[in-house]
Design a protein around this nucleic acid. Structure first.
Lengths: 343, 343
DNA sequence: AAATAAAATTCAAACGTTTGCACAAATTTT
DNA sequence: AAAATTTGTGCAAACGTTTGAATTTTATTT
């Protein structure tokens, strides 16, 4: 059943390589070679072919070409959610690089569903894509399914990666970033620093927690599990955790996410905190809003766009190593003791 | 030259329909029909084929299938920039619907370049996509090129559309939205309302300006071109225009964009304005940051996700009409006279 | 039991390219 | 001038699937 019957009844017959050949009294092979710039075809006929192709409005059928060549110029990108700021930036960066290299991107979102991830990978394999850029759904527990489905298709994992899978990996400097952020709080004079930690099923959050702990221990401060608030990544849970942190006597928080930090700010405002001299916050992820809210949030910029570019380049260059994208600490009002939140 | 030589030397031979046929001593045609659920193949052999397909780990080659069928299950989406909040939401909404209908999306970004738009459309045509969802680059002046390239490929334009192109169009209720926003300012008691207008080469901005004007005239207020600030869509120009608006004695602004409104807020803060009772602002586009900044911005929500869904459905249903997605006025601090900005 | 109808399968071509091999023509070498 | 080389084209098969028409098998009717 054709959905588009009412739109276009007669699909315009497109001119093929064979049409060009017929018009010039030569063979499709020669036309193919001419258009491909093969040096074994005479200059003269190459010109003639190009001219005729232009004249007939020829556009190559890449589906046929891909079938014959057994490979395509499409790279699949699998992300949990396209419209999450982090991922849309990764995609934007990757598309940019891939497009320059003559590739196009086929996008699948898993909406954090493991089953959808499997389906997406199968689809991409069925399209015989040249490679896959993948960030796992949050509830994927291992990379076994990927290997089974993708087989020999080159894979680049980014952000959420599984070490048991071969191939390139692009990850944020989670541990180092968390260390830097926590150290910044310590050096600013905060003394009881809690953390809004994420899900320990995710490597990235595990590493951030580790970095937080390392900074504390390197400074001789105690690591206190009672002020580690696990599974806190959204605004609501950030708010609740922050209330508990205040109760516990914390004077600062390192947050593994940006939205949980937003919730924490809600809690601080509600409790009458007035500035970073009273309570400091540094969040991971330099989401657009963090620089615009009040107080503006100190963050770790993960450079998602650059991460996408790195993933694309890793694919293009056939790399199989792990690259760590440094996180940049951006100090704003929420951790700047000399700066009242509301000026 | 194969980039991936070091990654995978032997491309795993994938099992084909022919392999299944050979294993069962039948013909590829029967296998094809069996897998397609054609009623002309015996129940018994259909089961056998499915079993063997499973056993051999068969995955269909959709490239071959597409070539033979002369159509694909890919829909191309062309946007100026993937990682702009509005577009990433449109894409997210469209992908969701299309995926449910068995389609996948190939994404191209034009980075606002007319040439890149042409290239993207050609690429999509070369892939013989089932349809194209398109939002034009800002410097495209007409839709002629689209018709020439796309031919009979179904087209759905969204947000930035050209009326001279046939096919479905999904647009925001720009005029109505601007009217509503401006009327809200008028009803709130503001008396000299300027506007941060966009580029008049873009239909959307023209309509927003028209809606602004209609509201003024419907209320007996003068339309004063000296407080219409054209080409003002980024933070910097919004800032500068707002300074002029203040100078000109305005007490409110309707902004055609969100970032220009952000710049306007910068200007107001700098000039010592303290609340919406002194100066009101309503912006178009309910970007995420608008609800989180201080003062929170009153906005018109364009419902980009729903717009993407509508575009996808328009394609699936073969519609050729124009759908108008209503804009929802969200009143926040920036236009709420009872609410000091800084509380 | 022969004739007819229905059901299941096979045959072969097609989709538009690409490419190894063969071949002819033009050019260079002996 | 014959032999060897280079240069440019053509031939035909292949990529993996789908599909109209032909054919075989099975079931139903006379």
């Amino acid at each position: 059943m054709d959905f588009h019957t009412n739109v276009c009844i007669f699909a315009a017959k497109m001119t093929t390589i064979t049409d060009i050949a017929a018009a010039l009294g030569i063979t499709p092979s020669t036309v193919s070679r001419a258009l491909a710039g093969n040096p074994r075809v005479k200059e003269e006929t190459r010109i003639a072919v190009q001219k005729k192709a232009e004249e007939l409005g020829y556009e190559p059928n890449v589906v046929a070409s891909n079938l014959r060549k057994g490979q395509s110029r499409i790279v699949g990108i699998v992300v949990p959610r396209i419209h999450r700021e982090f991922f849309s930036n990764v995609i934007g960066g990757a598309e940019n690089i891939l497009n320059q290299a003559g590739y196009n991107v086929l996008i699948c979102q898993t909406l954090e569903s493991f089953d959808a991830e499997i389906k997406a990978l199968k689809t991409l394999k069925n399209y015989r894509v040249a490679g896959v850029l993948l960030s796992h759904a949050i509830n994927s527990m291992s990379g076994k399914h990927v290997k089974d489905i993708l087989g020999s298709t080159p894979l680049v994992q980014f952000d959420r990666v599984f070490p048991d899978l071969p191939g390139a990996k692009i990850v944020g400097a989670n541990c180092e970033g968390a260390y830097k952020a926590t150290m910044h709080l310590i050096e600013s004079g905060y003394r009881k620093i809690g953390t809004l930690a994420g899900f320990m099923t995710s490597q990235a959050y595990v590493e951030r927690l580790a970095g937080y702990r390392m900074a504390l221990e390197a400074s001789g401060l105690p690591y206190d599990n009672s002020i580690v608030f696990y599974n806190t990544i959204v605004r609501e849970t950030g708010y609740e955790a922050a209330l508990k942190a205040i109760e516990a006597g914390c004077d600062a928080l390192y947050s593994s996410g940006a939205f949980s930090a937003l919730g924490a700010v809600d809690a601080l405002k509600e409790k009458g905190f007035k500035g970073a001299d009273e309570f400091g916050i540094v969040a991971t992820s330099n989401e657009g809003f963090t620089g615009l809210m009040s107080p503006s949030l100190s963050t770790l910029n993960q450079h998602p766009f650059e991460m996408g570019e790195a993933a694309a380049r890793a694919f293009l260059e056939g790399r199989v190593d792990t690259q760590v994208i440094p996180m940049e600490l951006i100090i704003r009002q929420s951790s700047n003791k000399n700066n009242k939140w509301l000026k």
